[in-house]
Design a binder for these strands. Sequence first.
DNA 1: ATGCAAGTTTGCATCGTTACAACTACTCTT
DNA 2: AAGAGTAGTTGTAACGATGCAAACTTGCAT
Lengths: 340, 340
Amino acid sequence: MDKPTLRTIAQATGLAVTTVSRALAGDPRIAARTRAAVAEVAQRLGYVPDRAAQRLRTGRSKVVALLLNTGHEYLGFTHELIAGLMSALNGTGYSVAMLPDLIDEGRDAAVREVLRNRMADGIVFSRTEVFDARVRLLSEHGFPFVSHGRTEFAIPHAFVDYDNEAFARAAARHLVGRGRERLLMIAPQGRFTFGQHLRYGLTAEGRAAGAVVEIPEDIHLDRPPEEIAAWLRRRLMRPDRPDAIICVGEVPAIAASAALGDIGLQAGRDVDLVAKRASPVFEMLRANVFTAFEDLRETGRLIGDTLLRRIAGEPPETLGILQPPVIEFTPDREAARRSG
Amino acid sequence: MDKPTLRTIAQATGLAVTTVSRALAGDPRIAARTRAAVAEVAQRLGYVPDRAAQRLRTGRSKVVALLLNTGHEYLGFTHELIAGLMSALNGTGYSVAMLPDLIDEGRDAAVREVLRNRMADGIVFSRTEVFDARVRLLSEHGFPFVSHGRTEFAIPHAFVDYDNEAFARAAARHLVGRGRERLLMIAPQGRFTFGQHLRYGLTAEGRAAGAVVEIPEDIHLDRPPEEIAAWLRRRLMRPDRPDAIICVGEVPAIAASAALGDIGLQAGRDVDLVAKRASPVFEMLRANVFTAFEDLRETGRLIGDTLLRRIAGEPPETLGILQPPVIEFTPDREAARRSG
DNA sequence: ATGCAAGTTTGCATCGTTACAACTACTCTT
DNA sequence: AAGAGTAGTTGTAACGATGCAAACTTGCAT
């Protein structure tokens, strides 16, 4: 009733351990008849190769490491990404291990650990920075990884990214088209590349259309929603108040919506709200927000596929995916009711 | 520039590999001076033990498997639980690996896989069922695990659970105390133990206080929020409509709030809303909902601690934790404003 | 028969670690 | 002074898989 090993099968079939190993690997040097016989016995005994032994011998762990933000995260961003990643890895024998991404201190610690003890064959991480230390380190070592988000390094590397610049441009066009002139964005921190893309896109497109664009440095997506709401209340009471708010994230959008209500302004009338959404929560809210959907499960899948190809040896030059944004801003229930 | 191994250190110190191994493990049979010397050299060379080799030799993987629901999940439930789990494991050398929890087909598949190839030393899972196949299987094998949620098996096993019955009772008392008489709960599916506890708690306490309690079987937390809202709209238009809705989850609470608004009813006046909350999102909503906070990060931490003790050999009998609920129902911003 | 290649199969070493039994050097006992 | 005891260290053999070189088969031409 012990776990069967190659030796068990070797004894059962009268073959050598090496032969069994090769047979199971489908090595063409082993006669087809032998391979079939071995496969049959292995199947019957319920043989499963020992991962630890394979890993020790080959140096490959069949594990993919995912760096996980340890801070608070309010809507189901992570879950969707992980689910997508797992579905891409499903059936490949790879599993996902999680390591903490200590975002505010030595962000490359987890990466260094993986490089040191080879606990994974590849790495995935989000919230990529413009000159991300992890990207630099991993690229230098030629270690397979996929960043969720681009960098501005000259060296190409594998990435999967949502076209945030296009999203921001579309939002600007949408709002200016509705007659808005003072655009405010609650954006990611500027250290993150996608924060830069969003800033650039909104600023360029907005100004070209003659609008004023405002993007606070200090009030960003990682601030607690209460603080965002409080800041917005103050900001909206000044005479030069924005007439449109773009929120890159669902919770800040809810905060913005609350702030508007608090000071007696109406979304859709006094101020337009635009948000990126990853869950169907907005469909339940009567917040009068225009949203564009970002499919993070699909992103996770693409990341998984890309990483597998990178691990298989494809060069990083050819492994960059820029997901086009859905440029249609769907009004939520309230907006739909109001305008139709 | 090769990775240092025990052999490297042995050569550097002139000791035998075995001695070095023992020294690093802090074995008292090795002289304190030798231990210090070895530690110093290991440190200097940047030695890190090879996990695969340790695992092959000892049979322990230093990995904890987490079964992750692959379905949709709308608010940050998973992220908080994982973050808590990781913080408990932090510094112990254990890492977390994720396996898919295929909730609607062969739920024990992932467990069987772990039992077969010993890819983890312990398992964690949520959404525990009354007679959970995974609990049965793992208990039979004496394999360390912690279930998030209890079962009704006679065999004791390690678990961490939130006292949902107490939550439901408190909610019933709170609502009846406010004069409500017809309580409706949007609950988890009855197959899950916590669904049973919630049903029982609300029914017992509500009926004892003379209220009518209604808990639909078919409209539960895993239904898409739109469907919950649609069902509630229909239900609320019937003459025997509930005057209080208890939502065990944030998204259903938002759906309920939307449904009320759709048909012109006001939360807090016509119908009271109560919800369990795990994120601060409600503080931003003007939904007039009374909430009780469930700290899932803490739950994750407790699960991690418990699992480590179970792996260390503590018997399951002594490893059950029932988290007391926060029985204070905080009104959200709107409710607070309204009531003074 | 002999040689030789192609087609199969085998033994050995190895990955890095730890368990086990054995060995050395030294002190203590009687 | 011989034997027992102890503290400290060592060598060898695993764990289960795989890479490599060598060794068997065959068949077939010489």
